[in-house]
Simulated assay, not measured.
Amino acid sequence: MARNEEKAQSMLNRYLAFKNEEKKKPKERRPYLASECRDLAEADKWRQQIIREIGRKVMEIQNPGLGEHRLRDLNDEINKLIREKGHWEHRIVELGGPNYARSGAKMTDLEGNIIDVPNPSGRGPGYRYFGAAKQLPGVRELFEKPAEIKKKRNRYEIYKRIDASYYGFRDDEDGILEKVEGPAEKEIREIALREWQRAEDIKNEARKTVKSGEVASASGVLFEEEEDIVEEERREKEKKEKETQTEFVVHVPLPDEKEIERMVLEKKKKELLSKYASEGLLEEQDEAKEMLNVHR
Rank of each mutant, 00 (worst) to 15 (best):
H251K: 06
A206G: 06
K186H: 05
R198S: 04
A218D: 03
E224N: 13
I229W: 04
E259S: 12
R189T: 00
G168Y: 03
F248G: 04
E247F: 08
E227C: 10
F223T: 15
K186G: 05
E187Y: 08
T246N: 02
L254C: 09
T246P: 00
A192K: 15
K203H: 08
Q197R: 09
E243N: 04
V210R: 12
L254T: 15
R262D: 09
D163R: 03
Y166A: 14
S274Q: 09
S212D: 14
P183G: 04
V252A: 05
G182A: 14
K186P: 00
L177H: 05
I229R: 11
K275E: 08
I176F: 09
E271N: 03
V221G: 04
E266W: 09
H251P: 02
R194K: 15
E238T: 06
E231F: 00
L177V: 02
E185P: 00
S212G: 12
E236K: 15
E181I: 03
R189F: 03
V250K: 13
F248V: 15
I188C: 01
E181K: 01
N204P: 00
I260D: 09
E190D: 03
Y166S: 08
E266Y: 13
P255D: 14
E238K: 11
I176T: 12
S219F: 11
R198T: 03
Y167W: 12
L273K: 02
E187D: 09
E185H: 09
E259K: 08
E181Q: 07
I260Q: 14
F223I: 12
K239V: 01
E181S: 03
S165P: 00
L222N: 05
L272Q: 04
Q245M: 12
V221F: 10
E187R: 12
L222F: 11
K179W: 03
S219H: 08
L222A: 13
E226P: 00
E200F: 08
K242L: 12
L265Y: 08
Q245C: 06
I202N: 01
D172I: 03
R198W: 04
K275Y: 05
I260P: 06
F248D: 10
E231L: 08
I202M: 13
K275I: 01
I202V: 07
G182F: 08
L265D: 01
E224S: 12
H251L: 10
E205A: 14
V215L: 11
K275W: 04
M263Y: 02
E181D: 11
K242R: 14
Y276A: 02
A218S: 14
A184M: 13
E261I: 15
K240L: 07
E271S: 05
E195V: 05
S212C: 07
F169S: 07
T246K: 08
R207E: 11
V230F: 12
D172E: 13
G220R: 10
E226G: 11
E238Y: 09
G220L: 11
E238I: 07
A216W: 09
I260F: 09
K242A: 14
D171F: 07
Q197P: 00
D163F: 01
R189D: 00
A164I: 06
E231W: 00
